[in-house]
Computed example of a mutant assay.
Amino acid sequence: MELIELDHVSRTFTVRAKTGRWRRERRTVRAVDDLSFTVAAGECVGYIGPNGAGKSTTIKMLTGILVPSGGRLRVAGVDPARERTALARRIGVVFGQRTTLWWDLPLRDSYELARRLYRIPPARYAANLARCVELLHLGDLLDTPVRQLSLGQRMRGDLAAALLHDPRVLYLDEPTIGLDVLSKARVREFLREVNTAGTTVLLTTHDLTDIEQLCGRVMVIDHGRVVYDGDLPGLHAAGRSERTLVVDLLREHPPIDLPGTRVVKVAGARQWLAFPAEDSAAPLVAAVAQRYPLVDLSVREPVIEDVIARMYAREVAIG
């Protein structure tokens, strides 16, 4: 069953640009351009792309905030723009930079307001709250005002609030942005549980680790169009993307020479080695530790914008 359906959807905006001292020119910007795709029930889909690609506009149309300029759009069997009340009961939304919680109220009171807003039956509410509190480690935070929560705690609180009414679809916009390593791990573990239980997830993020650990499918959007739809290894292959091994040695050393890598930069005792993103870092880490006076190392994931740029460069070269 397809829970999300977009059929030749477009969205345009009219903006005014200054063309002289007193004159302004109106022009049309096409944020989403003839977009078509479907998402099946139970999928976890990464919806990624550079800033300005049209991701947020798509999410706003899927939630009924914006009305498409053209095309057909259905979510969980309803038209988002025309049936917002019905849709609200079937979706959950979490924006990493915004909160739906009441700033000066304890977390528990925000959840109680959500129960009344969505008219959640008491038994169902109690069961869902208990599950979220356990999985997100919120037990010690329920009586804490939202304004006193850390960013990671608030994000976990927002996730719980979005799922109390058992939505069929969960939209996530940068859910791990600004979080520390432990908070990211907890959020990702919870989202895996939610998706495994049957909730369909559409995730927008600039963190490819989120995609790698959560999503079986990736869609890349750029200039309002889908330019890739497949799995993450296929995306890396299409863009010939690379991860970077950052190596801190005990002292300055000639460039490290390891098969399958290339030295990107050397700065004193620190060296940057690029290797194919689809390859495991474990053999490289072991080789560096065995052959060189190692102090520390880390692995940097490819930047989404770089992956897309490489993908376009390859298409142009082939063309």
Rank of each mutant, 00 (worst) to 15 (best):
Y292P: 02
E301I: 05
V295M: 12
A282H: 12
V288D: 04
V295T: 10
A274L: 06
R291L: 13
E315R: 14
E315T: 09
V316H: 06
A286H: 11
A282S: 11
V285F: 03
P283Q: 04
A309G: 03
A309M: 14
E305V: 04
P276H: 06
S280M: 03
A281S: 15
P276S: 04
E278S: 12
A282K: 03
D296A: 14
A286Y: 04
P283Y: 06
D279A: 14
D296R: 08
R310A: 15
P293T: 07
S298A: 14
P302G: 08
P283D: 09
R300C: 10
S298R: 14
V295C: 11
P283M: 08
S280P: 04
A274M: 07
V299G: 02
L297N: 04
R314K: 11
D296V: 05
V303C: 04
E315P: 00
Q290I: 04
E305R: 04
P276F: 09
L297Y: 15
I308M: 05
E305M: 03
R314C: 05
E278C: 04
R310F: 11
S298E: 14
V316T: 13
A282V: 15
A313H: 06
D296Q: 12
P293L: 09
F275R: 00
E301G: 07
V288A: 03
A286R: 08
E301K: 03
E305Q: 08
V307Y: 06
I304L: 15
A289W: 00
V307S: 08
Y292K: 02
V316N: 05
V288Q: 03
A282E: 15
